[in-house]
Simulated scan of single mutants.
Amino acid sequence: MKWSIVFLLISVQVFSQKIIWSDQQKLEWSNFKSKVKTMRNPDVVAYTHCGWEYSSTVSSDPSVPVKIKITTIFREDKSWKDPKRINDYALLHEQKHFDIAEIYARKLRKEVMEHIKTSSDYNKNFKIIYNRILNEYKDFQIAYDRDTQNGMNKEKQAQYNASIAEALETTK
């Protein structure tokens, strides 16, 4: 019985075409599996489709404690690369997009832990907190690409690399 459960879990992970964020696993170009170029900008070398998934156990009894799991994911089937222009430097830029998603997932987890204890709290506050953090996350991702010129501005990229690494460290 144990083997079938382990196999099932491995199968789901292998065939799900998503990677769960871990500081032990970095993206590789082979993870970018979409054949469809999703960006119109000709200067873009790759597109990283990342964000969060969450699951919750909410009771109809408003006083029951709620459990919420928030996971940062990278979608291989929706992430694209121009194979003629990829390099390690561009891959680092894309990894930082994934790292930014984890930073904001940590912010979301923190707010959820502080403000959502019961099913009633969840029903009243989760969408508000989620949408606020999501908007902050989207704004930061846009600023990151704009400021670094999609990774082409090496000085700005180095600044973001340092600030992202610091944020990952301080939000552990």
Rank of each mutant, 00 (worst) to 15 (best):
S79M: 03
K154H: 11
Q17H: 15
D82K: 11
I10L: 15
D145T: 05
N123Q: 15
E155V: 14
L92C: 04
E28R: 14
P62Q: 11
R106D: 06
D82G: 04
A167Q: 14
I73G: 01
P42T: 06
A143S: 14
D23L: 04
Y104L: 02
P62R: 11
G151W: 01
Y122K: 03
F74I: 04
V112Y: 05
N150C: 05
P65W: 08
M39W: 02
T57I: 10
L8V: 09
N161A: 10
S22Q: 07
D121E: 08
I5C: 03
G151S: 06
M1W: 06
L91R: 03
E169Q: 14
I68S: 07
M1P: 03
M1F: 09
L108T: 05
S56C: 08
A46D: 04
G51I: 04
H49V: 02
K81T: 02
I100R: 01
D43A: 10
D121M: 08
R75M: 11
S59A: 12
S79C: 07
S63L: 12
I116E: 09
K124P: 00
I103F: 10
M39R: 14
T57M: 08
K107A: 02
L168H: 08
W21F: 14
S59T: 07
I10G: 04
Q149G: 00
N41D: 15
Q24K: 15
T71W: 03
I10Y: 12
N150A: 11
K37G: 03
P83E: 11
N31T: 01
I73D: 01
Y104D: 03
D88M: 05
D77T: 08
I116M: 08
K84A: 13
T171S: 15
Q157N: 03
S55R: 13
S30P: 00
I164V: 15
V6W: 06
R132Y: 09
S79N: 07
R109I: 07
Y137N: 07
K96M: 14
L92E: 13
S59K: 11
I129E: 06
K154R: 15
T171K: 13
K35R: 13
D82T: 06
V45K: 05
D43E: 12
C50A: 14
H93G: 05
P65N: 13
A158I: 00
K67R: 12
L91M: 07
F15D: 01
N87A: 06
Q13R: 08
T171F: 12
M152W: 07
F140A: 06
T72H: 04
K18S: 09
R132T: 13
E102K: 02
K37N: 15
K96E: 11
S63P: 00
A90Y: 13
Q17V: 00
I100V: 13
K78V: 00
D139L: 13
L9T: 08
Q13C: 09
S60Y: 11
G151F: 03
I19S: 03
I68L: 10
Y104C: 04
S22L: 05
Q149F: 09
F126D: 02
Q24Y: 10
K117P: 01
I5V: 14
Y122Q: 04
S120Y: 07
A90C: 05
A101F: 01
L8E: 03
E114Q: 15
K84Y: 09
